[in-house]
Nucleic acid binder design. Structure first.
Lengths: 229, 229
DNA sequence: TAGATTGTTAATCGATTAACAATC
DNA sequence: TAGATTGTTAATCGATTAACAATC
C-alpha cells in the first residue's frame, strides 16, 4: 500500500521506464542495474533508485533489477492491470485515429463505445467499437461503469461536453481538445494532450537555438573585425 | 536579447498563458493583474511575475498587464512570428488528422509537404498539402529549408526515418510515435507527444484516487465495527 | 569471500513563494 | 496624492544528486 505522496515528476517518468523495460525484454535482456538504465535514459542512477523506492523495493543488492519483474511492478503501479473502461467523445479525425490505431487494451483500458453528433456514422462500428448519438451519452453513463472519458470534440463544444460528463459521474478525462477544461478547485482528473502547446514549446527551443547560434556568429564576427584593426 | 537560461517548467507554462490571454481578449478584457491571471490558471501571482521576468518587463506598476500586448510578447518568445517550415512524415490516421484539422499556420508554422510510402496517396493533395513518396524525402530536405519534421510513422520505422531526417540536417522533430528517438547526447531537439505515456499517467491518478477512497472506506469500516464492540 | 549494487539518509541544487521597495 | 501592482531580492520548499551502510 502506497501512502506517501509521489510527485508528478516521478509519475511522468514511469511510462518511460516501462517502455525502456519492454525494449530490453524484447532484446532478451533479463537484468539491469540503475546505472545502466540511467545511461540509456539520460537519468542518474540515484534518481532511478529514488523513483522506484517510492513504491517498494524491486531490486536486489549486487544484482540490480529483473527486467520483466520490474516491468510488471511498474505496470501495476500505473494501473494497467485494473481494466478501466473508457468512452470516446467525438469521432472526428483524432477520435478516429484513436479508434483505428491506438491500442487501448495494451494499456489496460477497454474502449466501450464512441459518441458523435454526425448521423452519418451513428449506428456504425469502427474497428469493432459502436458509435452512438451524443443524445444517448448521458443515459449510457448512467447505466454503465465508465472510468474515463476521451475528449476529442471540437474546441467550442469542449466545455459543454465536459459538463455532461462530470454531471454523470465521470471522474477522469483524457483531453485532446485545445481547451483548458480543468477548473482550479475541481476534483476532476484531467490529462491534457494539447497539440499546440507541444508544438509551441518545440518552436521555442528551435528559436532559442537559432538565437544562440546567431549570437555566437555575431561574437565571432566582432572578433574577426577587431583582429583586423 | 534573452541570455539567461530559462527552465523547461517556465517554457511549458507559456503556451497556457497564451491561450488564456487569447480567451481574455475574446471576452473583451484588455488588462489583467498577475493575481487575477494566477487565480484563473491556478498559479501564484509570484510565479507568473517570475515567469515573465525571464524575458523582460511587460507590465506596469499599479496597472497590471495589457492583454494583447502581453499576448504578442509571449507569441514572439515562443517563435510564432518566425514562420518555421515543416514536413510531415507518415500520412496515417494521425498524420491525416494533423493535415486536416491542425492549423499549423495559427502557430506560426507552414506545412510544406507530407511524405508516405502508400502509393495510393502519393501525388495527391490533402487539404492543399502535397503528399510525396518517402523516396523523395532526402532530396526534398536537401533542396528546401525545413526547420522541423513531424514524425507520425509507425513505431517500427521511427528510428530509421529519424536517421534520414538528421542526416539531412533536420534539427527538430515533433514526435508522435511511441518510441524514444532522442539519443542522450544528441543536439537534436525532440518534442514528444507520447499518447500512451499520457494515458498511463491518467490511469495512475485514477488508481491512486481509487486506492485512497478504498483506504478511507476501510478506515471508516474499522471505526464502525470498533464502536459496536 | 569479494565485488557489485541496492535502498536510504544527507547534501546540494533549483524552483516556487513571500516580501517589499519602486513606481505607475 | 493614495492605492494598486509590478519586478526583484530573499526565504522556503521540494526535487535531484551524492554518499554509504546493508547485503546479495
Amino acid at each position: 500500500m502506497k501512502r506517501i505522496k509521489v510527485s508528478n515528476n516521478v509519475i511522468r517518468r514511469l511510462p518511460r521506464y516501462l517502455r525502456r523495460l519492454d525494449e530490453l525484454a524484447a532484446q532478451g535482456i533479463s537484468r539491469i542495474s540503475s546505472s545502466e538504465l540511467g545511461q540509456q535514459l539520460g537519468l542518474t542512477p540515484s534518481q532511478i533508485r529514488q523513483d522506484f523506492s517510492c513504491f517498494g523495493e524491486f531490486g536486489q543488492q549486487g544484482y540490480g533489477y529483473n527486467v520483466t519483474a520490474l516491468r510488471e511492478e511498474i505496470a501495476r503501479i500505473l494501473g494497467m492491470d485494473r481494466g478501466y473502461s473508457a468512452v470516446l467523445i467525438g469521432v472526428g479525425n483524432i477520435g478516429r485515429a484513436l479508434m483505428d490505431n491506438f491500442c487501448f487494451s495494451a494499456w489496460g483500458c477497454k474502449l466501450l463505445c464512441a459518441f458523435d453528433v454526425d448521423s452519418g456514422i451513428i449506428g456504425k462500428k469502427l474497428n469493432g467499437i459502436p458509435v452512438r448519438s451524443m443524445d444517448e451519452l448521458s443515459a449510457f453513463l448512467k447505466s454503465n461503469t465508465v472510468d474515463l472519458a476521451v475528449l476529442a470534440v471540437p474546441n467550442d463544444s469542449a466545455k459543454k461536453v465536459t459538463a455532461i460528463l462530470t454531471e454523470n459521474g465521470i471522474e477522469a478525462i483524457w483531453n485532446f481538445t485545445n481547451v483548458d477544461i480543468a477548473a482550479p478547485e475541481s476534483p476532476l482528473i484531467v490529462e491534457n494532450l494539447h497539440f499546440s502547446d507541444s508544438l509551441l514549446s518545440l518552436t521555442y527551443y528551435i528559436s532559442d537555438k537559432k538565437d544562440e547560434e546567431a549570437a555566437r556568429n555575431a561574437r565571432l564576427e566582432r572578433q574577426k573585425s577587431s583582429a583586423k584593426n
